[in-house]
Design a protein around this nucleic acid. Structure first.
Lengths: 219, 219
DNA sequence: ATATTTTTTTAGTCTTACCTAAAAATTTAT
DNA sequence: ATAAATTTTTAGGTAAGACTAAAAAAATAT
């Protein structure tokens, strides 16, 4: 069955919100990410349920069916492959590609994605370190952990980010915190959980707990 | 002012229909290309006129204003650049790219098109030999002439096509009539104006007048 | 010059995806 | 356990872009 642009965006949002929890996703949570009103979300959830892409019961939140999940994963696959293209082939920075990929992810063509995948040499991570779902809808786990979970004196390598807003990524870039950066935790401030770290053996810098939470590293 | 997908497609169609004639474009002609009904076209023409992109007077047909033409040319530019990408970088054949480019042409990002143009090394023709409008909205003339206008015994090179439907392009490919093919006109049949031609010095073949009309060559 | 045919427009609906305001259900606080 | 606050749903509307049927204008034929 054909999916409209709006439907695809809803399925993608529901997928994202389902990643953390086993429970149903709330109407309000969807509304916030969709930048729309709760009433509109209720409308759409009913339509998605009729089409068999979500399980929806009034007041009980929503969860994806296998077919809904398959659609969501295919959108995410397209989004992430296009991001690789934009960065690797067109020379964009990692903070510039999200919005363009939001448009490109809705282009409909099986063969296009196959050829793009091949052209990019079958990448398995996007420029933010996120895994790219396979053609048959399997996505590797996020195997990296937030920098905020490490202890003092530990070394690690920056492998990804948990948030891809432009302002956040621009901050990281300014701090020389790019993919592959070597990080040493010098000290964790117990008062506000901010960290003093060393990036690629340069002079120490401070990052807030909020920032550290969104930096994914391999110990 | 922002343009919707539907508006962009109408402007593109009106541009195409204006290329041949100085007069206004008829409602029915637009309806046919837009694969919609005349009543829907009338609706849309009124909206486009309000936005200042076309001059429209009841029963008098429609023509593009400079701003409407600028939008149309930017869509055509995007369409043709994406076609070059699909053929040159992803390995598509020239008969497979039209529909995908119809989707890609609506992606909105100035920087994307600039970077794509650069990545493709600033092509000035698409895979069908059509000129690609420049960034500032100038399009080179179609400098090639239909094969059907040449005389017997003349030699020429295939530089483009005047029609990019998949069936037509597949026929050409089967006859080895690709971009750059060397053609010699052996004989023109005065009864039905069909031609006997030689392609790249192979054994002679016949092509109809209809086919010859849509093959563009450099003498 | 008038009648017929064709083209175009108007009028009234439909669907999608959104909205606001009000009602109902659920959750939280006392 | 009940009251208050919050969340969610329903009801009723709007705009874009399509549709059909009927009316009006223009073009063609007699």
């Amino acid at each position: 069955m054909a999916t409209s642009l709006a439907e695809e965006n809803y399925l993608k949002i529901i997928y994202r919100l389902s990643e953390n929890t086993e429970l149903g996703v709330s109407t309000n949570a969807v509304a916030e990410l969709a930048q729309t009103k709760a009433a509109s979300v209720t409308d759409m959830l009913q339509k998605l349920a009729e089409k068999g892409w979500v399980i929806y019961q009034k007041y009980q939140g929503v969860r994806l069916t296998p077919s809904g999940q398959k659609i969501a994963l295919s959108i995410i696959r397209k989004h992430r492959l296009w991001e690789v293209f934009l960065v690797e082939k067109l020379g964009y920075n990692w903070d510039e590609v999200h919005e363009i990929a939001e448009q490109l992810e809705h282009i409909e063509s099986e063969s296009l994605i196959q050829k793009l995948d091949e052209f990019l040499d079958f990448p398995d991570r996007d420029p933010h370190g996120d895994p790219i779902p396979t053609r048959d809808g399997k996505m590797a786990d996020q195997i990296y952990q937030p920098l905020s979970e490490l202890k003092e004196k530990m070394d690690c390598v920056l492998m990804g980010v948990a948030k891809d807003s432009a302002v956040f990524l621009q901050l990281l870039t300014k701090l020389d915190l790019n993919l592959g950066a070597k990080i040493t935790i010098l000290e964790i401030n117990s008062f506000d959980r901010s960290l003093q770290i060393q990036v690629n053996s340069a002079s120490p810098i401070f990052v807030s707990h909020e920032v550290a939470k969104n930096i994914l590293v391999k110990a």
